[in-house]
Design a protein around this nucleic acid. Structure first.
Lengths: 338, 338
DNA sequence: TTGAAAGCGCTAACAT
DNA sequence: ATGTTAGCGCTTTCAA
């Protein structure tokens, strides 16, 4: 079934059917009705390939989850990326876009992965959720080819040339540590997330600022460099314990880290929050699924995906040409662990 | 940049370039080399719209996650669907397909959702991960239009006309309950998953068979109908407690249910496994993230996605026309909760 | 307000 | 082994 068949059945020309489908104003009510009726009866929808070929638009966006598979969807935080995708998906479909999902294959290099994406010409633009150190190839090619894209998270390079959506990690981390300070804690440690990632870097920066603003000095013995996983949280907490430096609170780079840390502290008989307070970041479901419920910073994950997609579609449709940066608000959620 | 530009630079015709790109045998080594060199230099890849238009193939598959959003990606088990998607994605890309992801929008009806998918003509076929009661519209239309598709999970209708990949839930559930029986448990209750879903139905069936095979009688007071979520597990466990019927073990429809049940039992002072044994289904990460570690049935989630995709691509490419059903093996994983 | 016709970039049948 | 040519099903001038 094609346009021409509809045209014939409706007694009009191809062009008129096309006009009806595309909402052109210059069609009489009468013919419009007739044509819509035939389309409805036949359950017709236009061939997207033919349309793409002439319009040079696909109405498809790509979503790139560029962290290594195991980190993205494995043990700890599938929730985070799942919600991101849901936010993108909802918004995309609101604007009649479909969504091509790109996941790194376990048996391929990052370079191959990016090549695969770049070679695919089925997308009008990309939403990229990835730690950005590794994707110079991707970012460079995209910038060079003028392909519209929006980053989820602050890029470490070209910050002013790139549209992105994030939260104010520095400010949020400060808020977290200030909360611990307000509880009377003074020996506040931190277990960072990945420090090749703006989220990790900025949260550490916020920690330091809060400590300094309180008139304390930043003590390297209180800082452990981890990754955004539960296992790393566990390991880094043990490292802190082994160092022997007294601590009465920990600011964790995210909730997964916090859960691992709680486990480590609990195992050696420390009580949370009595002996040691813990605060996380994200407010994932795991935050409230075990005792003690986790005090944490809530960030609007779904909205991050949604706003990024709106931004991308604006870019694709030629609205708002210059790079835009959006920081979404966060919220301190006080529970039992602090 | 198009085929013709490459042709010109390589000093050959459009068709020859096309032949090289599509691996046609009838090209001399010399020209093939020349053409590939130009393609490489220019970073050319062919316009998929043009190719689709003539080949009537898109090399795109769709993945439909048709449960309500909240159930798919929310609190409990994003892990399950995430891994499914990863399995599909890996396999799709092995065969040079891209993957269009379909998530139900929070503000749309199932019917609208399915219409949206059916109207999109950008896919050669579909992998459908959904409880199947609700998608008569989808299945019917797909069957009628001869669109290739593969179901993840056994369909409740048209079972012999439909290709699907699942595990042998009946047998697996029997294995689970037999394990409890072997531990000397005799008052074995079950908290089912959704009973409008083949997984839920078949696991209940397996439970009943195991009970009967052991010479016991199925007691309705030991059966609670739940859903595949932690919350339902919690609620149904409380229901069991309120009924007052003595129980010494619970077969949960999945791990999320099991976790909720453990919480409910622990809250009233029951010890797992001393007072009550629990067994789950899936073997998600949550199974080992809290004490006691959960005894459960492991199912190969990634492989489910992978096999379904292979099946789908076979269908698309005209191999193996008749509907195929695949049941993947499961495994009893004995841990602390039993 | 409508129709005729050109052309988007590719593949594949046919010719050579 | 390579080139020529006719579409694939749409949108979009241009003309009427």
């Amino acid at each position: 079934m094609k346009l021409e068949d509809i045209a014939e059945k409706a007694g009009v020309s191809r062009s008129t059917v096309s006009r009806v489908i595309n909402g052109d104003r210059y069609v009489s009510e009468k013919t419009r009705h007739k044509v819509l009726e035939v389309i409805e009866n036949e359950g017709f929808s236009p061939n997207p390939a033919a349309r793409m070929l002439v319009t040079q638009r696909t109405d498809v966006i790509g979503v790139v989850l560029a962290n290594r598979v195991e980190e993205v969807f494995s043990a700890d935080s599938p929730y985070y990326f799942s919600n991101l995708i849901q936010g993108v998906s909802d918004t995309a479909h609101d604007h009649d876009f479909s969504m091509l999902l790109w996941l790194e294959h376990s048996r391929e290099s990052v370079e191959q992965f990016y090549q695969r994406i770049l070679k695919n010409r089925l997308m009008d633009g990309l939403v990229i959720a990835a730690s950005v150190t590794r994707e110079n190839l991707l970012l460079n090619s995209l910038l060079k080819s003028q392909t519209p894209f929006v980053l989820l998270g602050r890029p470490l390079q070209y910050e002013d040339q790139i549209s992105y959506v994030s939260v104010d990690n520095v400010q949020a981390a400060q808020m977290a540590v200030q909360h611990l300070l307000a509880q009377g804690r003074r020996r506040i440690a931190t277990i960072t997330g990945n420090l090749d990632d703006a989220d990790g870097i900025d949260r550490l920066e916020g920690y330091k600022r809060a400590i300094q603003n309180a008139g304390l000095t930043v003590d390297q013995a209180l800082i452990t460099e981890g990754r955004f996983t539960r296992d790393w949280g566990y390991l880094c907490a043990r490292t802190l314990l082994q160092r022997g430096t007294p601590i009465d609170a920990v600011f964790a780079g995210n909730d997964a880290i916090a859960m691992g840390a709680i486990q480590a502290f609990t195992e050696v008989g420390l009580r949370v929050p009595d002996d040691i307070a813990i605060i996380g970041f994200d407010d994932l479901p795991i935050a409230t699924q075990n005792a003690p419920h986790l005090t944490t910073i809530r960030q609007p994950i779904l909205q991050k995906g949604a706003r990024a997609t709106i931004l991308l579609i604006d870019l694709i449709e030629g609205r708002g040409q210059q790079p835009t940066q959006i920081l979404l608000p966060t919220q301190l959620v006080i529970r039992q662990s602090s």
